[in-house]
Every structure is written in structure tokens, then in C-alpha cells.
Amino acid sequence: MDIQLLTQRIPVGISQCAVGDPVRFNGGHKHSKVCTQLLSRCFELHPYCPEVAIGLGVPRPPIHLIVSDRLRAVGRDDPGMDVTDALEDYADRIAPQVAQLRGFILMQKSPSCGLRTTPHFKADGPDTLAHGAGLFAARLREHFPHLPLEEVGRLNASDIRENFLTRVFAYDAWHRYVEPDPRPGRVIDFYAAYKYLLLAHHQKLTRELGQFVSDVRALTPAQFAFEVRGRIMEILAHLANRKDRTNALMHSQGHLNEFLSREERAELAQLIEDYRQGLKPLSAVLTMLRHYLPRSPHQFIHSQVLLAAEPAELGLCDFR
């Protein structure tokens, strides 16, 4: 599998209020400059507002979620107004459109779009029982369990933004490389290309995935592809840390050592150690690894996505 840098914007869904459209219940918006000015450099944003789409209008009576026989979306001031089925039916109707997206950015705390922060209230009082997903977001997750999802507000944090970008890039790459021809061989090639990036996110889960991939005959090709994609997306959902990244960088160095002089090996090892201690940025190590990469004739190390341009190097992590 050849590493390919981003050449066109990736289609990603987004809550419509986050792009600045006045579609909230009070006629306002929640414009996110991080999304429209930064992430739009690599994402083609497709806005959706479930509550407007089901005919609630702007402005509209607010709704909230209550826990009764099931989670329901009802009017905050008029409990007789129940739009539960309408919101879920809307998610079902647009599923073919969402299937073409490679991620979805959702408005936090929204009874329709919240991902993890939406209050779930008691049916007989004002107390909050829990916080979780809104009805539209939950339905999306049912239809597309591996689709990268994130809340607008959390994307203000550079590490979470980098993680979401990494997941979207991987999900898009899967659909370009594996989805048209999901034979086990192509699935294994994809896993192999992502191996060191996966190690940078979670070493234990990556080792378990490696063991799973080695027993390809245990499942049908479709089941195997679905399971591997799910595990890859699960691993990438963990934030990469300095310790695991250092381990992945050292693995990469191991493939190059025989092609380096003693002085070059020492310089690279010291640079990786400086990164581990927080003295040098990741980009410095990646630049040096890429500099030595042409010396190796081995396709495995050339295919490693870890050594491709990362979100920070594309200028997608720092925003002022």
C-alpha cells in the first residue's frame, strides 16, 4: 500500500449551527472558526440540522431528552410534543448520504446532535440521570459504528483535533483502498501500512490486532474486513502519547539501522531520545527518518503511514 498525501478535501458532516447558520432553537448559531477556517482546509463540510429537517422551524420550542420506556425527545415546555421517531427516521433517511462521508462533527449538549454531553433527564422531574448522545447522533452510530465522530467544542483542543483528523484520514484511506476490493490480502496490506501508527496510539491493542490478522481464515472476507476496520478505528480513537510514539519511532529506526553509519545511527537515536524527553518535536524525528528512508529497499518501512505527513505538519493542529 503506497502512502498518499491528501490531494482533495474529504467529505465530513457537521451540525449546521457550527458553520454559522442561524438554525438553533432560539434563532442563533454556534459558529466554530476551528471548523470553518481550519478544518475546512482539508474537509469538505456538509451541514445538517436534524431539528430543522423534521420541520420544527426557527425559532422553535426547545426539546430535551427524557428517560421513560426509552430515551425520548419531547418538548421542554410541552411534554406532549414528542419528536423521537421523527429524529430517528431522519437519520435513517439520510443514511445513504452519510455513507459517503468520512467523519461527522456534532454539536455538544444538543438533544439531537450531542455525542457524549447531552443531558438525559428523569421523566418526572428536572434531575439529570446521565449525559450521553442525542437521538440523531446515536442513530448515526448505529448505522455507522466505525465512522469518526467528534463534538465541536472538543475540537478546540489541539490533541483531540489531531486525533480526529488522524481517524478521518484513516477512514477515508480505507474507503479508497480497501472498500472497492475488500479481499483479505488488501485488508492485511492496509493493516501493515498502519502498523506503526497504530502502535503510537495503543501498543497492547495493536499487538492483539496483529494476532487476529494472522488468523484470516476464521471469518468470511466481509466479516474479516469489518472486524479489522473496527479494531483499527478503535485503536486510533486513543490519543497517541509520547511513550507509545517513541516506541513506534524506535521500531521505524530499527528498519533503517543497517543502512546508516555509526554516527548517523547515534544521531537518530539521540533525536528520538530528545523527543521522548520533550526536548524536540515529533516533526524533527519524522523529517530525519524520511531523509534516510530512500536507503532502505524494504517496502514495509516505505509503506508506513506513520512516516507520512501528520496533521500537525499540515498546519491543522495549531489555531490562533
Rank of each mutant, 00 (worst) to 15 (best):
P119C: 05
Q299C: 06
F224H: 08
A237Q: 14
K243M: 08
S68D: 14
R102Q: 15
F144P: 06
P297N: 02
S158P: 15
Y275P: 13
T128A: 14
G114Y: 15
A53L: 13
Q16K: 12
G153N: 03
V178T: 04
L39C: 11
H302D: 01
C42A: 12
V23P: 00
S283I: 10
A130T: 12
V67M: 14
R295G: 00
V83G: 02
D172M: 03
F121K: 15
E273P: 07
L6Y: 03
G230S: 13
F190W: 12
R245Y: 01
F190H: 04
R290Y: 05
H146Y: 07
F164R: 05
Q253P: 04
S110I: 05
A130F: 15
I232A: 01
D318N: 15
F224A: 07
C35L: 15
A192K: 11
F226R: 15
M81T: 10
R320F: 09
Q4D: 06
G75S: 09
T36N: 07
L199S: 01
E162M: 02
L140T: 12
E263L: 11
H46C: 13
N163L: 06
A53T: 05
N163R: 14
L155W: 03
Q270C: 08
A312V: 12
D2I: 05
R231M: 09
F43C: 15
I10G: 01
P11E: 01
Q100T: 10
Q304R: 02
H64M: 04
Y275G: 06
L101S: 05
R41G: 11
G315E: 14
V83F: 05
F300W: 00
V216R: 11
H175L: 06
R116C: 06
L65Q: 09
R76D: 02
R245C: 02
R70P: 08
V58Y: 08
R139F: 09
N257S: 14
